[in-house]
């Protein structure tokens, strides 16, 4: 979604921003875990983006820009601040993925719901990076742009997020 070098107009903004509406709302809901709050988030995101559209640099990634606004809006919101409890993120530490994965069981049971609840249990940084990568299918570079972190951090955090998700799933599957 690279923007060509062209004059930015309100019409351009609408053309670019509205197709992102569904995915932005989904992402907002995942972050806020509340429909009303998700709506507030999306609404504020669009308002901020529209206001700041003149400062958007054509040629850069518009989708990442929108997600960044939404994410920053969430992080400064009340529930966002609650979510940002210090975590031992140690992004640079390599965590090897374990091979005894619960995916097989998932495959058999096709437990989408289980996966959703597992996602909800993940801390925000893991939840959001998995959503950006798997659901939004962003490239590492896009994720880096969205989260304002280097690509190396994206890779290590993603690895830790996946490990974390597998841990939660494993725990949940043991219980069932």
């Amino acid at each position: 979604m690279e923007m060509p070098e062209e004059r930015l107009t309100a019409a351009t903004f609408e053309e670019l921003a509205m197709p992102l509406f569904d995915q932005l709302y989904n992402f907002a809901h995942w972050l806020a875990r509340d429909p009303a709050e998700a709506e507030d988030l999306v609404q504020e995101t669009y308002a901020k983006a529209l206001r700041g559209f003149s400062s958007f640099q054509p040629g850069t990634n518009f989708r990442a820009w929108m997600y960044r606004i939404l994410r920053n809006t969430f992080l400064t919101s009340r529930s966002g601040l609650k979510e940002t409890v210090p975590l031992d993120l140690a992004d640079d530490a390599e965590v090897p993925a374990r091979s005894d994965t619960p995916e097989t069981i998932l495959l058999e049971r096709s437990q989408q719901q289980l996966l959703q609840t597992a996602m909800e249990e993940l801390p925000l940084p893991f939840r959001e990076i998995l959503l950006l990568c798997e659901v939004e299918e962003m490239s590492y570079q896009e994720i880096a742009d969205t989260l304002s972190v280097p690509i190396g951090t994206v890779m290590s955090r993603l690895s830790r997020a996946r490990t974390g998700l597998r841990e939660v799933l494993r725990r949940k599957l043991k219980r069932t």
Binding site: E14, E39, V135
Partner: peptide, 25 residues
Amino acid sequence: TLQSAGKRYQARPEFRKRIQKQIAT
């Protein structure tokens, strides 16, 4: 599975309209 499970929430049609109106400010 994560890809489809992640696409979980859908906005209300009224909310979409509201945003569209907001953009058309």
